[in-house]
Simulated scan of single mutants.
Amino acid sequence: MMSMPASERLGSHLKGAEQALSATKTAVLKPAGLTIAQYSALLCLAGSPGISAAALARLCRVTPPTMNAVLKNLQDRALIARSPHEWHRNVLETRLTDEGRAVLADADARVVRTERALAAEFTEEERATLVTLLGRCVDVLELEKQHARP
């Protein structure tokens, strides 16, 4: 016997929405030749040129080894360039190349269409409420995670 019906489990609804968004983004990014992780890295790099791989991993919410693999693939495609930091030679700064900016522009236009279609399903007030409610979900889950640690 289940202690809580599946229909009442918010996690299932959140996961379903996340999976639908991920599947859609995967589909719309495919023609641009990017994965979601690569797109996210390029988008963050556009806003924070010169950022380190470790800081980029935190910003994109992935592990450093995952980000290193993403950056290697982007560098192999000449979408990013990495060079030693002026003062900290063991830190590599990462920047978009001209090709990277072009690929990002195409990919971002595709993702923005999806984001706009999603946003159009809600009134401005509903969108604001949804953002607030999702933020509260994150806050509560972060607290639960901290309490779960031995």
Rank of each mutant, 00 (worst) to 15 (best):
P31F: 14
K145G: 03
A41Y: 08
E115R: 10
S12D: 04
A17V: 15
L29T: 03
N90L: 05
P5N: 14
L130C: 13
S40Q: 13
Y39H: 12
L143I: 08
E125N: 05
L134K: 11
M1R: 11
T26G: 03
E124Q: 05
G11S: 07
G50R: 06
G100N: 04
A17Q: 10
T26R: 09
A32D: 06
Y39V: 09
K15Y: 03
H147R: 14
E124V: 06
L45T: 01
I36M: 12
V62M: 14
M1H: 04
A17S: 06
A23M: 05
I80T: 06
S3P: 00
Q19E: 09
A46W: 02
A69S: 15
L74K: 11
A107K: 07
G135K: 03
L71D: 13
R110K: 02
L14K: 00
A57F: 02
H88V: 01
L56V: 11
V62S: 10
L92T: 04
A55C: 01
L92M: 06
A41Q: 06
G135A: 03
S22H: 15
M67H: 09
A148P: 00
D106F: 09
A53M: 11
R82W: 02
V70E: 12
L92D: 02
V91E: 05
A55M: 14
L133E: 14
E115W: 15
A6Y: 05
T24N: 06
V91G: 04
Q38H: 06
E142Y: 03
D108K: 14
H13M: 13
R89Y: 04
A23C: 08
A54L: 07
T94H: 08
G47P: 08
A6F: 02
D98W: 03
K30Y: 00
G33H: 10
G11I: 09
L118F: 07
A32V: 10
L29V: 09
D139R: 14
V103K: 15
A46K: 14
E142L: 14
K25T: 00
R116E: 08
L59F: 14
G16A: 09
R82A: 13
R9K: 13
A148Q: 10
G135R: 02
D76T: 02
H85K: 01
R95L: 07
S7I: 09
R77G: 05
S12A: 11
R110Y: 00
E125P: 11
H85A: 02
P31S: 01
S83F: 06
L96M: 12
L133Y: 05
C137W: 11
A120K: 06
N90W: 03
T35I: 12
T26S: 07
P5L: 15
T132V: 12
S52E: 10
P150M: 11
E93D: 02
L56Q: 12
P150V: 11
E144F: 15
V91D: 02
G100W: 00
L143K: 13
A6I: 09
G11P: 01
A6M: 02
L143V: 13
A148T: 04
A69K: 07
A81E: 10
L130H: 09
E8Y: 01
R95H: 10
R101T: 05
K72Y: 02
A107D: 07
P65C: 08
A57E: 02
L21E: 06
L21S: 00
L14R: 04
L29G: 08
L104V: 05
L43S: 08
H147F: 15
E93W: 00
Q19P: 05
M1N: 07
A6K: 03
A20D: 04
A117R: 07
A81N: 09
R58M: 09
S22P: 00
E99N: 12
I80Y: 10
